[in-house]
């Protein structure tokens, strides 16, 4: 049946497809998404902040004034220098101040952000892959597979993610011999945070898969008896990635905070390889003795990073949702 809309929405044939074949970059620049981005100051500012911070964190070994974890570069005499003031013994000044070991806080924050981002990105990738695969299977195969996957997801979603991560992390720590624990912490943390977040992807992807599965292009593939995994991966997956991108972006901010929380609680990254959370835990011991900068700068970095990424995620969700336009 034809549908003729009574409203005055522009008819379907107004959104033009560029006739000349533009280079990929020019096409991307001209796309609706790029245009929505350019007309949203919040999105642009957030992207600028996030990209600067991510860039600085990734390039930390190149741009940081010192390697904060190389004891040879630390000078105890320079401990507890206030931000921006010259040290009374060596005359060196630290933009973000220094900690009791004479560690430059700017370098510590950059290296810490690096660890935080690594854990965040890796755990998001892990939970996205895991959740998308399970969601595709639940939506496409249906029946018992769907019932089992979705009930587990329901149960997991009824507990806070941090609790799940603590549980997984705790169990893993109990299994792994103590000698290897320090090295394994990073991997364990990624797995724990990743496993605590898959259910949201699975739920969303299952819903989108159910919609796509009913569309005729999927039936066309079934008519020529394409195997189920080919239909799921090649046909349906590319069409359900929009919402996954949105969740992944917002989840990146959440995963960074989750990691910081775990590290703050002392079950995350060790002080020898600190993340922003570890730095905050260490820093809060000095807060009441007046050395505020040891806490303040890692916390500021965490807040800005999480906020910027979250705002990008929010914007992306609105921009990809045609109904909100």
């Amino acid at each position: 049946m034809r549908s003729h809309e009574p409203e005055t929405a522009p008819p379907e044939n107004v959104s033009p497809a560029p006739e000349p074949r533009l280079p990929a970059l020019a096409r991307a620049w001209d796309s609706d998404l790029a245009h929505a981005f350019r007309s949203s100051p919040v999105a642009m500012l957030s992207a600028l902040i996030a990209l600067t911070m991510i860039g600085a964190a990734v390039l930390a070994p190149l741009i940081a004034p010192q390697n904060p974890f190389n004891p040879a570069e630390l000078n105890l005499m320079e401990g507890m220098t206030r931000p921006g003031q010259a040290n009374e013994f060596t005359g060196r000044s630290f933009l973000f101040g220094s900690d009791p070991q004479g560690r430059d806080m700017l370098s510590a924050v950059l290296y810490g952000a690096r660890v935080s981002l690594l854990v965040g990105a890796a755990s998001v990738a892990f939970s996205a892959v895991f959740g998308v695969v399970l969601g595709l299977m639940a939506g496409y195969l249906g029946g018992r597979v769907e019932a089992i996957i979705m009930r587990i997801a329901d149960i997991q979603l009824s507990f806070p993610a941090i609790l799940i991560a603590l549980l997984i992390f705790g169990v893993a720590r109990g299994v792994i011999p103590p000698a290897q624990q320090e090295d394994a912490t990073l991997i364990l943390l990624i797995l724990a945070i990743g496993l605590s977040n898959w259910a949201q992807y699975a739920r969303t992807v299952r819903g989108s898969t159910l919609i796509e599965k009913g569309k005729e292009y999927v039936q066309a593939a079934r008519v020529i008896r394409r195997p189920a995994f080919v239909i799921m991966l090649r046909h349906i997956l590319p069409n359900v990635m929009g919402p996954v991108t949105v969740i992944a972006t917002i989840n990146l901010a959440l995963a960074i905070i989750e990691e910081a929380t775990l590290s703050f609680l002392g079950v995350g990254m060790p002080p020898t390889q600190p993340s922003l959370g570890t730095l905050i835990r260490v820093g809060q011991q000095f807060l009441f003795s007046g050395e505020w900068w040891i806490l303040f700068f890692p916390a500021l970095m965490l807040v800005l990073l999480a906020l910027a990424i979250n705002l990008i995620g929010d914007w992306l969700r609105d921009a990809l949702n045609p109904r909100l336009k």
């Binding site: 034809r2 003729h4 809309e5 009574p6 409203e7 005055t8 929405a9 522009p10 008819p11 379907e12 044939n13």
Partner: peptide
């Protein structure tokens, strides 16, 4: 045919117009 403007004509007469139209 669809897109010829027939529904739009009706919508314009009864004032059911939404931006950007």
């Amino acid at each position: 045919e669809s897109g010829a403007g027939k529904s739009l004509t009706g919508a314009a007469i009864i004032g059911l117009i939404e931006p950007p139209g």
